[in-house]
């Protein structure tokens, strides 16, 4: 019986099948480029041994996995807020591990270490944000329509039912005490003062209520652009010095921050459209529909799952 001669073309057949399943997904372009390189190499050689040696020298079989993964992670990262370390940590660390891996065992080793590191570090990075969100909630009650703004509006318009007035005044009192307690906890736990929070570009934005409207926390819609100044002013000049209710409302006459209101549905939709148009050139927004789902499988056979 004649021996079966395996040509590079024949050997590459399963790879063509794998290629065909992802060839219409531009989000996988980095991986697809490696497949194409492999096929070109197959065309160049007629001898299977010479072909496999060159494939090995270029480490192409591993790059089918790693380049695909790196491409997907880079695209995903482009849709994130780079200041949000808690959100981006796992993606950035995963990218580093893929970049450093030269073979499957290497990747398993690094991914193993990484899974524990991500489990340990991501929540730790999110912890300071939790404290600041709590403080922000108290400040919003103190200064907002259920607190100081509510009282001022009732007085200004003359529509001043006593129960509603008393309720807003009570809310102001309680929110002030709670905010003072929370900043004391933040100081005791993290060693951060209110000024430290304001000096942190990411943390200070957690003081105000806002919602993500684009990608993976790429853009947020918030009320009054001066809201942070309004809350900071209330903290510095009323809450921290423990100003009385009378004095807190009296001092308002010198301020010109403007009133605020929450965004309505139409404004949220418009904000989404503006954000999308602003970031349309970023890879994430070109391939967003292909990144749906929590994981993408890379490599042949067992391969790896890229968690997004």
């Amino acid at each position: 019986m004649d021996p079966v001669i395996i040509t590079p073309q024949k050997w590459l057949e399963p790879f063509r099948t794998a290629y065909d399943t992802i060839k219409n997904l531009p989000v996988r372009e980095r991986g697809l480029a490696v497949y194409r390189k492999l096929f070109e190499m197959g065309e160049k050689h007629s001898d299977i041994t010479e072909f496999l040696v060159e494939v090995e020298q270029e480490n192409l079989l591993w790059k089918l996995c790693s380049e695909d993964a790196l491409g997907i992670l880079d695209i995903s990262l482009s849709g994130t807020d780079p200041l949000d370390k808690g959100l981006t940590y796992s993606m950035r660390r995963n990218r580093e591990a893929w970049d450093a891996s030269v073979c499957e065992a290497d990747a398993h080793y690094l991914q193993d270490l990484l899974s524990a590191d991500i489990a340990k570090t991501t929540p730790r990075l999110l912890q300071p944000e939790h404290y600041v969100l709590c403080l922000g909630a108290h400040l919003m009650v103190y200064r907002g329509p259920k607190g100081k703004e509510g009282i001022m509006e009732m007085i200004a318009t003359g529509n001043c039912p006593q129960p509603a007035f008393m309720s807003c005044a009570s809310n102001m009192v309680v929110a002030k005490i709670q905010a003072r307690r929370t900043i004391a906890i933040i100081n005791r736990a993290l060693g951060l003062s209110f000024d430290d929070i304001l000096a942190d570009e990411f943390l200070r934005c957690k003081l105000i209520a806002s919602s993500n409207v684009c990608g993976l926390s790429k853009a947020y819609v918030q009320s009054n652009p001066n809201l942070l100044d309004i809350l900071a002013d209330a903290f510095r000049h009323e809450i921290d010095p423990d100003l009385s209710l009378m004095d807190a409302i009296q001092r308002e006459s010198s301020l010109t921050f403007g009133r605020w209101r929450m965004p309505d549905d139409r404004e949220v939709e418009k904000a989404k459209a503006i954000a999308r148009s602003t970031f349309q050139d970023l890879p994430y927004f070109q391939y967003e529909d292909q990144l749906q789902g929590s994981k993408i499988h890379v490599g042949m056979g067992e391969g790896f799952d890229i968690n997004l």
């Binding site: 001022m152 318009t157 006459s253 921050f257 954000a275």
Partner: peptide, 21 residues
């Protein structure tokens, strides 16, 4: 407190805005 509150109430209501990362 009428004067202080009217002054505040006369201020424009600033529309919501978008914060880009």
């Amino acid at each position: 407190l009428l004067e202080a509150c009217r002054h505040w109430y006369s201020q424009e209501v600033r529309p919501p805005c978008l914060r880009l990362s």
